[in-house]
């Protein structure tokens, strides 16, 4: 097993601050070189999470186990929706996550669900709330592998990202949402950091169907008092757009830690998205996740 260490010189792998010590030679089927390296290192499962579970022994790549994963996320959330006003709202979030990974050593499928809620406020101290579930499915193929289990994966990912906000103190009658069904390439790097399994992932949606609130809207036309309204209404009238009209990045880095005989994953997840219709909306979420199992 190769050890990982922190490096202080610019290199593609250092974009994450980690690198495998013995990153060469790469073994079959493909060597990662040049421009492929950052893709391999910034790639893949979002939100990723990895742990060595009972199934780990069955995998030739112990950094990516299969099965069910679950965990929690703590987030710092920011939003700006000019449909309401060009105000930045920010605040903490808390969420649950679950995942299911399956497939062989060279091809993997990964489904993940996140259910975070957050409490927001603007610079006037006005309060808001957001519910931002995300459901993803990724299919990845291993494109490179080093001698010591570091591997690069490339593939595609379908995502459903919702951000459903209620800016109570500013507009107590409407929901402000952006719902994006997106498709795009994904890449993942999986290796080791200081001896522990580690990974990095990147999703960049290229095609999306994006739903936003209509303009104009009547008073209280959103079904605030009904849970179904919060989930169904934000799906309506989606518009198909391509990058960069809908621009988003979903990236993550993580490592598996072992404490007292139990292993769990700690990861940092970055979600950013921007869309312009019917008015500019931008979201930025940075999360720390703690999970067990291959929560993807």
């Amino acid at each position: 097993m190769g050890r990982t260490r922190l490096r202080c010189r610019p290199a593609p792998s250092l974009a994450l601050g980690i690198e495998t010590r013995r990153s060469r030679p790469w073994s079959a089927p493909t060597r990662l070189r040049g421009a492929l390296v950052p893709l391999a290192l910034w790639g893949g499962l979002a939100p990723p999470s990895l742990a060595q579970t009972a199934s780990a022994g069955a995998d030739s790549d112990p950094t990516w186990t299969r099965g069910f994963g679950y965990g929690v996320t703590l987030s710092a959330v920011q939003s700006r929706d000019d449909l309401l006003a060009p105000l930045r709202w920010r605040g903490p979030g808390f969420g649950l996550k679950a995942s299911w990974d399956w497939g062989g050593n060279d091809r993997r499928h990964a489904v993940a669900l996140r259910m975070p809620i957050s409490i927001l406020s603007n610079r006037f101290g006005h309060r808001g709330y957001a519910f931002a579930p995300a459901l993803t499915y990724g299919f990845l193929t291993r494109v490179a592998r080093s001698q010591d289990t570091a591997a690069g994966w490339l593939g595609g990912r379908m995502r459903l990202d919702m951000f459903n906000a209620f800016y109570e103190s500013w507009d107590d009658e409407h929901l402000y949402w952006i719902t994006a069904y997106s498709l795009g390439p994904t890449g993942a790097w999986r290796g080791r950091f200081r001896g522990a399994p580690a990974w990095a992932t990147l999703d960049v949606p290229l095609l999306a169907a994006v739903a936003r609130p209509p303009e104009p809207r009547l008073n209280q036309i959103d079904r605030l008092t009904r849970l179904g309204g919060h989930l169904v209404d934000p799906q309506k009238d989606a518009r198909v757009v391509a990058f960069p009209d809908y621009a988003a990045v979903h990236a993550a880095v993580g490592v598996v830690l072992r404490v007292g005989g139990s292993s769990f994953s700690v990861s940092y997840i970055l979600d950013w998205s921007r869309y312009a219709l019917p008015a500019r909306v931008a979201l930025l979420s940075q999360s720390v996740s703690i999970s067990r199992g291959p929560a993807t």
Partner: peptide, 12 residues
């Protein structure tokens, strides 16, 4: 810097 990233907030 990533951790400190903020969405822009223009003058209202």
């Amino acid at each position: 810097a990533t951790l400190a990233a903020c969405l822009t907030e223009p003058q209202l």
